[in-house]
Design a protein around this nucleic acid. Structure first.
Length: 187
DNA sequence: CCCTGATTCGC
DNA sequence: GCGAATCAGG
């Protein structure tokens, strides 16, 4: 992607607006943040009014002492690095409904609870109780093929990040609720 | 680890 | 001139 007059103007404006090089690169498209920074320097735009952080100016490294860059290794890494740089952000769906209450552990055919020794594929691996306690066991309810947890605990385990945004007081209540649930399960 | 800008140098 | 690789740091 060439630096057309229009793209250069956009670059100048966004840079003056205080956007970071990576943000400008995303907005322009077809360039990396390195390309943007390189262009900024060639245009003589480096050094802005109010960057989020002042750019430090350390002592320049002596070129003669600097280790040579391995060109071959650079080529190998190019694809992966570009893939990382161009990664697009995907909009997150709306938060899910609150998770259901935890389930009681399932008893096995012999009346015991699932332990680390008896837990099998297809059994919910949700831990219940203190792992150091002899009463420690696993949920043990059936899972979908390949799933680590039963439906209820899967919802508990895989909550969207967004819906965890609550008031601190609510978080404290959730902790107390969890402790009471554990007590009920163990004693 | 995420991110920031700065610099070098092969192309 | 361009920008990937790298550096130096928050």
């Amino acid at each position: 992607m060439a630096w057309t007059d229009e793209r250069v103007e956009t670059l100048k404006k966004l840079w003056a607006d205080g956007l970071s090089a990576s943000q400008i690169a995303k907005q322009l498209g077809g360039v990396t943040r390195n390309a943007v920074i390189g262009k900024v320097h060639r245009l003589g735009l480096s050094g802005r009014a109010a960057p989020s952080r002042p750019a430090r100016r350390p002592a320049p490294r002596p070129a003669a002492v600097r280790a040579p860059r391995p060109a071959a290794a650079a080529q190998v890494n190019k694809t992966a690095r570009n893939g990382t740089d161009r990664k697009e952000l995907i909009a997150q769906p709306a938060p899910a409904a609150p998770p259901p209450a935890p389930v009681d552990a399932k008893r096995l055919a012999n009346g015991e609870y699932a332990t680390v020794l008896t837990l099998r594929e297809g059994m919910c691996k949700w831990p219940i109780g203190d792992p150091a306690d002899s009463q420690f066991r696993f949920c043990g309810h059936p899972t979908k093929p390949g799933a680590a947890y039963c439906e209820a605990h899967a919802q508990q385990a895989y909550q969207p990040q967004a819906k965890r945004k609550r008031k601190p007081s609510d978080d404290a209540r959730a902790v107390l609720d969890s402790l009471q649930t554990l007590r009920r399960a163990n004693f």
